[in-house]
Amino acid sequence: MISVCIATYNGALYIEEQLESILPQLGQEDELILSDDGSTDETLSILKKYQQKDSRVKLFNGPGKGVVANFNYAISKSSGEIIFLADQDDVWLPEKVLTIMVFFAEHPKVELVISDLTIVNEKLEIIEPSYFSFRGVKLGFLRNLIRNSYIGAGMAFKSTLKKDALPIPAKVPMHDMWLGLIADVQKKSAIVSRTLTLYRRHEFNASQIKTKASLYQMLKWRVSISKALFRRLILKKGH
């Protein structure tokens, strides 16, 4: 069973296009988890329309504490053995789910993967053909602690990762960085170099390709996430 988790907030402009790219790739036993964080536009009415016509769509009221907490909540509601994360404004290419599922089948020790994305504008016109090349994406715990490569829009992981990853600490910079590092420190992450997502950038994006945070803020984040990882993976398993 597959779960796709989307954290929504005022995403009416693009959410239908994203849902239409995801649902045809899912089987009847799969699920699409939508956690809405209090949208004030037409997002909820759109999501309810899909919920009414497709039993695979499961809609929840998010915790109202921002994108990290909202994704944490969506993931906690998932039931699938493989969990895909999706942004509300992207578009999945038709072969995404099959490609990732085949990769997991061929690499049974891997618990988390990120696949490449094409960066596009609001009209889906190409800005950068490869997110991986543009960002210099590589694996490695220390490297990603300093300069994060893990991106939720291209991420999928096994449900077995949830026992270590959830709940996602409130003070980490982003949910995808936390999930990636949890897998990376255990050497259970992998890269799928094939481009499987159109990663749409526009004026209302919740995330940034290049952070605008100060050096001081970035250092605070790294210290916070390092402490959280130590508590989760060392102290927790010691009890």
Rank of each mutant, 00 (worst) to 15 (best):
N148M: 05
G180Y: 00
R201C: 12
S159C: 00
G180W: 01
T197S: 01
I168S: 02
K188W: 04
K158I: 04
T160I: 11
S193Y: 13
I168R: 02
F157T: 08
L181D: 01
D176H: 10
A190M: 05
V192K: 12
L198E: 01
K188A: 05
D184P: 06
F157Q: 01
H202P: 09
R147M: 10
R147F: 11
S193F: 06
D176G: 12
K162D: 09
W178P: 05
M177E: 00
R194Q: 15
L181Y: 02
L181E: 06
L179S: 06
P173V: 04
G152E: 09
A170H: 04
L161M: 11
S159P: 07
D164E: 15
S149F: 09
L161G: 11
T195M: 09
A183Y: 03
S159E: 11
L198A: 07
G180P: 03
K171T: 09
K187R: 03
W178D: 10
G154Q: 12
Y150L: 12
G152S: 04
P173D: 10
H175R: 01
L179N: 05
S149I: 08
W178T: 13
L179P: 01
G152N: 12
L166A: 07
A170R: 11
L166H: 07
K162Y: 10
G180F: 05
L198M: 05
T160F: 03
N148K: 14
G154V: 01
D164M: 06
R200E: 06
R201T: 04
V172D: 07
Y199I: 05
L161F: 12
K163H: 11
L198Y: 12
T197H: 06
K171F: 10
K171N: 15
Y150E: 07
K187A: 08
H175A: 11
G180S: 06
A156F: 08
K188N: 08
F157V: 12
M174D: 08
T197L: 10
A165W: 14
T197N: 15
P173E: 13
